[in-house]
Design a protein around this nucleic acid. Structure first.
Length: 426
DNA sequence: TCTGGGGTCCTAGGACCC
DNA sequence: TCTGGGGTCCTAGGACCC
């Protein structure tokens, strides 16, 4: 059996942990640039504040009900996420936990006898809550897709389930499938949902009864086939090894206000390249492809919001690298090529890909002195920036004015990762 | 005025090979 | 000049996830 363990309103829970007075107040957390709403407490949901909705649109409602609002504080969430995952790793056999996102993980419960699944899940939940202060919901079922369905229902009917739901009989599974609309199935997005509704497939039970050939034809080949199998209790999405290295690393941001000069865009790109390279070195990787994109600002369109097309280009480096200075140079060259004078831009990003392990970090004795000098310089900079303050040491190309920096007006202190911001008890 | 950031996997189609 | 049937590898773009 597979479990999915998911933190309830994760970002909001993190904020409440250090401000217990907010426990019963409606709380929301905003995306970068204070653009849209990415986490809501139950109280905020009940008021009708919409997930992923733009902040400015929800603002009247937020002010009216005095919804407590935070900018996102990823240092805090990242650290608390790590605590939750470590707790689960302690309670489960080695390799049984697969971290899926910042606020959820899958767990293999193959070692737990069927009749103990419920009590063991409750034990997991209570221990995590006691050790970390973060509330979680747990769904248990034969496959990952079914456990996601269980988890969703556990959360939806809190009073009934106390946030734990085990689907271990055919009857329970069928009932759960019937209660799950197609668009609420993990793996069915907006576009497939529309399509399925056209075929008069309205809930997960309907979908589970479609045949494999049909799924292959209509639902994106093997993706659809796997989904149908999983809904029928046949494991088709395996537990994965803990992924330690990413295949691509991106740093992209909206600008605080639109930017119209090449100098400013170059500063932003240099800064994002530094950040991306830092992430790359953290996983001991080196990248041989770097791409840069910028997104022009457009007049607002009626109808559904979407970003306009981006302008991008990329280069293959002669040799994979993780040195900021080696990556900034081509990044700025690309920037110069794609930038158009007279245009204003609202967003930019840097993506590193073709990532390979950076073996030269270890094999220092026999590598050429030049790259090695860079590695040492880089790890010195990383150490200084990590132990003191972000960006104490940075490359000149990153600039010092930073008019393009994102808005983040309501961020809480980084209680658990900065000494200067540690929680004070009076 | 103001709508996030960071990922993964899959497919189709082109280029190239024998 | 005409002409087959595979196969691999790569890339761009789509769809989805949280």
């Amino acid at each position: 059996m597979k479990a999915i363990i998911d933190c309830n309103s994760f970002y909001c829970s993190c904020e409440r942990l250090f401000q217990p007075a907010l426990a019963t107040r409606p709380v929301i957390v905003l995306s970068n640039n204070d653009g849209c709403i990415i986490s809501r407490s139950d109280e905020a949901k009940a008021l009708g504040v919409e997930m992923a909705g733009p902040y400015f649109k929800a603002k009247p409602l937020i002010l009216k009900h005095r919804v407590v609002t935070f900018s996102s504080n990823y240092n805090l969430y990242g650290d608390l996420s790590w605590r939750v995952m470590e707790t689960l790793r302690t309670l489960l056999p080695p390799g049984a936990v697969e971290v899926y996102s910042v606020d959820e993980c899958f767990a293999d419960l193959g070692h737990i006898p069927d009749e103990q699944l419920q009590s063991f899940s409750v034990y997991l939940k209570e221990t995590v809550e006691q050790w970390t202060g973060i509330n979680v919901s747990i769904g248990v079922a034969p496959t990952k897709v079914l456990s996601k369905i269980a988890n969703r229902l556990a959360k939806k009917h809190k009073a009934l389930t106390n946030c734990v739901l085990v689907l271990n009989t055919k009857r329970k599974i069928e009932q759960a499938l019937q209660k799950t609309a197609v668009e609420d199935i993990w793996g069915v997005g907006w576009q497939y949902a529309v399509k399925l509704r056209l075929y008069n497939i309205n809930n997960a039970l309907d979908l589970s009864r479609q045949n494999i050939e049909w799924a292959h034809r209509v639902m994106g080949g093997v993706v659809g086939v796997r989904l149908i199998r999983e809904l029928n209790g046949e494991e088709s999405i395996a537990m994965n090894e803990e992924r330690l290295t990413k295949k691509m690393i991106a740093t992209t941001r909206m600008f605080g206000t639109p930017v119209g000069t090449l100098a400013e865009i170059r500063e932003a790109i240099a800064t994002y390249t530094s950040k991306a390279a830092e992430k790359l070195r953290r996983q001991h990787g080196a990248a041989s492809v770097i791409s840069v994109f910028i997104v022009p600002k457009e007049p607002p369109q009626p109808g559904r919001f979407r970003h306009g097309p981006s302008v991008s280009s990329y280069v293959h480096l002669p040799q994979a690298s993780s040195s900021t200075n080696e990556l900034i140079k081509p990044a700025l060259e690309i920037t110069g090529q794609i930038f158009e004078h007279g245009m204003f831009y609202k967003k930019a990003g840097v993506v590193l890909s073709n990532i390979v392990p950076d073996t030269s970090i270890q094999g220092n004795l026999f590598t050429a002195p030049e790259p090695n000098k860079n590695r040492m310089l880089m790890s010195t900079i990383d150490n200084v920036n990590f132990s003191m303050r972000n960006d104490v040491v940075k490359f000149a190309a990153s600039g010092t004015t930073c008019n393009w920096k994102m808005r983040q007006e309501l961020r809480s202190p980084r209680y658990t990762t900065r000494w200067e911001e540690i929680c004070m008890v009076n």
